[in-house]
Design a protein around this nucleic acid. Structure first.
Lengths: 157, 157
DNA sequence: GTCGTGAGTTGGAAATTCAAACCCTCCCGT
DNA sequence: ACGGGAGGGTTTGAATTTCCAACTCACGAC
């Protein structure tokens, strides 16, 4: 019989969400990736209260997702920019945006469109690094590496 | 001069997060996608308080992301399963997991590994539907479709 | 009958969020 | 020198949420 764990499942998704899953954090990252990294821009564009925004920014900087960038000495003025690690969260934003575009906008009236360098409109597809095929739920088999944690069989609706 | 908007930027990311961005929602979806859709499993595996979990489940069902599935009449027992829309959030989970695996586990000690149908370990790559190329930040040009909202130029760190 | 299981609901204390106001440093025009 | 204004926050107190433990209700098993 499997152990009856008291703590939640160990999981990189949970760990990632502990850093960027709080309210506004991903919206901050969105703006910062768009190049709108100043405090007042972030307040306006995300709608976050100023104090909450200050807290989130500290956390994201501490986590190495954003960095403060001086754009003016005298008066000292900073701008937040994504670090390498922050930019690597862009796939999360892209897939989330795509889901929202497809499921929350039946009219097809998108607030933002991305153009890809190839000349076409960008639509994300998640593929397998090894074979290049699109990720389909039925072709993914989860293998928990921690004893006591299981998955339960057919996962379709 | 651009308008000075009072409301936050209209955005599918924000709209999607309004549905699935609350604490535990994506962990619930993770478990449900793994096939662990029963209330007590969700409590144990996500760590969510029972009342919060009940609230989240109602919201996700209302949003059409999960559906209740009767697995036993007398006594009536339900299980939550992802709908089509819920399964289409899997790319978000996959990219988030990958980020967590790479940035939050320097030891390379992953709590879960996914096997792909192709026989290899699954690692997600986000590609452009049109050209098949991997999405790179510098090759994506955002074009806001709503007047008054801008993006500010170079977005690299 | 009493115990155990599954799926929640209830009640109150603790932690977060929110909005508005405030502060500080500098730059500018007069 | 003085009065704005902009940028980047901090403070304060009220409104929400979260958390946790305990409780409920419906059954089935012993």
């Amino acid at each position: 019989m499997a152990a009856a764990p008291k703590d939640p499942r160990p999981c990189s998704i949970a760990d990632a969400l502990a850093l960027v899953g709080e309210k506004y954090s991903l919206l901050v990252l969105r703006e910062v990736c768009l190049g709108n990294g100043r405090f007042d821009q972030l307040v306006r564009n995300t709608g976050a209260p100023r104090d909450v925004l200050a807290t989130r920014l500290r956390r994201l900087v501490d986590a190495g997702i954003l960095a403060k960038h001086l754009y003016s000495e005298r008066p000292q003025r900073f701008e937040y920019r994504p670090t390498r690690a922050g930019l690597e969260l862009e796939p999360v934003l892209l897939t989330l945006k795509d889901w929202g575009d497809r499921h929350l906008r039946p009219d097809g009236d998108l607030p933002m469109v991305l153009d890809h360098g190839c000349g076409d409109t960008f639509v994300p597809v998640v593929t397998c690094r090894a074979c290049g095929g699109e990720a389909r739920h039925e072709e993914l088999t989860p293998r928990p590496q921690t004893p006591g944690w299981t998955v339960s069989g057919p996962t379709a609706a």
